[in-house]
Design a protein around this nucleic acid. Structure first.
Lengths: 204, 204, 204, 204
DNA sequence: TATGAATGAGAGTTCATTCAT
DNA sequence: AATGAATGAACTCTCATTCAT
């Protein structure tokens, strides 16, 4: 069997094991067995447990970002782009639960190198959302100077809300990607709109 | 030394070790050493690594919920209650980074029993937020029947956004609890308001 | 059982296994079994295979040097001191074959750190012999300036001859320590004497 | 590429790896890579790691003995023959450090079969030296019966001294083969002469 | 003549956990 | 109330070796 295919097999197996057990609790024995190969072959092709986990993180991160980017048509209006991105996000995470578990739960817990890896991916998503929000701000009239830091915070909030809704939609009783996206758009869009028009909430 | 105090010492040590290493990578040796006691004593008082981690989760969860609940005065208007809760949340997580790391990063990755534990706590927070949103909905005149499921989704989104902002505020360049709370209120409050008045976003 | 005694047990076992198998071929399992303890205990007390081997080298080196030094009375004439040192050397190596095998055969083959360790010990012996030769040179009348480098070479030769005779005496048919020492003194002493009186051999 | 040349390539590579790592620590992977061939080819030509190491020992032993024998002209006087043999020995070991390391350090540490192999070679050298010493004894008048065993001991001492000086000369600051040989001849020759004339040292 | 693909067996090391005191 | 001493079990990783081509 050619090397490339074997490698994919192994990474698929690894993803399933990492996804259900976490990094530390996963054993290379189990991964090799699930892949249907011997342990030494896993090491020959993928070097070490750490490298294997890193490779999984990278592959899944690329797939997720690819799905989101691929779901968005930059010719459309900005609200529609946000909606499409969210829908793609919820759909992809629902279809790849192990990948999502690795990125969202396990990579955060496995130590510095993995945290760095997954943080980089998240930054990319945040940057993408940030750019959408910035465009929206530019398009709104009145734009009373949304500070860069404020935009960053909004993007963080949006991404966090989406992550949370992904867990909610996929875990509990069936909530579709569409519904989750609608919930978030309803929640977020007019808040953004108000903000851009200078209406703010402040404690009294 | 009285038992209660010793136990606290041990749990403090455990929290630091779990917080920085994660559940699996933490070693009982390190915990015992950091606590300044022998390993058998740790077992005598806290039974097992699993029990010890569970105890940490419970203690930190209770502390966090206590902080949020304690920050909210139920006699105040609902928006102010939300604001106060958020401020308390951001303040507490900033002041207890190990506790927050255990709850947010590590418990999710350590296997079923811990996930269940932390999920229960999160449900409690979500329920609290849900009740706030429900009150807000009731207070708004128009209330065109916000479906229960919709309210639940909003609460999930709000909580997720808060979690994300907690990481953002504590990790990156200094963002204060106040600022984080403001960002989220601005983002969320008018979105909620619009929703309650029946204005929705829908794809076209 | 107190820690010190256990440690000695383990090092005795390690010495036997290292002595008969060499560093790499020795297994920690075998050492632990021969010591009558579990492997983790060996690691708890002695850290690693490398540390354990180093500890063996150091202990045996100290014992050998101690035996040689202890066999020499510095109040005696220099030829007698050399004789006594040699006798002690041959006796000790004959009585501690595993120690000698570790120092002479295996440490040289196990990589840099061990080589350094055993080289340091050998240097000490060479220095000891060098000092004897230097004294002898000073005592001889004519002393036509034995260059320092020449003395060093002589000491190296003497030590090498002794090492070789140790293997010969202990391995083959029974040659006593006494006999080995006599062989070497006969061989070496008048050569040294001639040298000091300025008689040299040179190729023609 | 013809088989003979390939084999030489492989053995050259093996010698370098064995010489710097030792038998056990050397890996067939590294040898194959250094030889620029695939591992199965190494096995096809040289059967096993053990056979490969044995082949290295034999080749290097033959080369060393050949160099010494080749350096000696049996028509010359016996002292000159010894001198020439030593010079050839020091020269060869200096020029083939890996071969010397394999013979002197690593073969002794690799287990029975290799020890036997290298012992056989050493016996050959000892026998050669023994014959020189015996000739010298015969040539000296007076020969008061140097016992065979005594001659054997002398030869062992001489060989050991030479081995030691080889390490000293090659390792430390530059000492030439010539110088090393001179040191040893000065040291040994008159000792031998005295011995043959019946002068002995004995403890008092 | 030569190799890419694959593995059985075993190495060193660590860890949660328990006695006996 | 507290510990020094000890271990079974499991883990990651390596290596000499062999097919099938």
């Amino acid at each position: 069997m050619p090397r490339a295919e074997r490698e994919r097999q192994m990474m698929d197996a690894a993803l399933r094991v990492f996804g259900s057990r976490g990094y530390r609790a996963a054993s290379m024995d189990e991964i090799a067995e699930l892949a249907g190969v011997s342990k030494p072959l896993v090491y020959l092709y993928l070097n070490s447990k750490e490298d294997l986990f890193t490779a999984c993180i990278r592959r899944e991160a690329a797939a997720l970002i690819g799905a989101v980017r691929g779901g968005v048509d930059s010719a459309r209006p900005v609200d529609r782009r946000l909606w499409d991105g969210l829908t793609a996000f919820f759909t992809h995470t629902a279809e790849h639960p192990d990948g999502w578990a690795v990125l969202h739960n396990h990579a955060r817990s496995g130590g510095e190198p993995f945290v760095a890896e997954v943080t980089a991916m998240r930054e990319e998503i945040v940057a993408f959302v940030t750019s959408l929000v910035a465009v929206a701000a530019r398009e709104a009239h009145g734009t009373p100077d949304l500070a860069e830091r404020e935009v960053a915070g909004l993007a963080q909030a949006l991404v966090g809300a989406a992550e949370s809704l992904a867990g909610w939609a996929n875990g509990d009783a069936g909530v579709s990607a569409c519904e989750a996206a609608a919930t978030l758009m309803n929640f977020a869009w007019s808040g953004l709109g108000d903000l851009m028009n200078g209406r703010r909430w402040s404690p009294r």
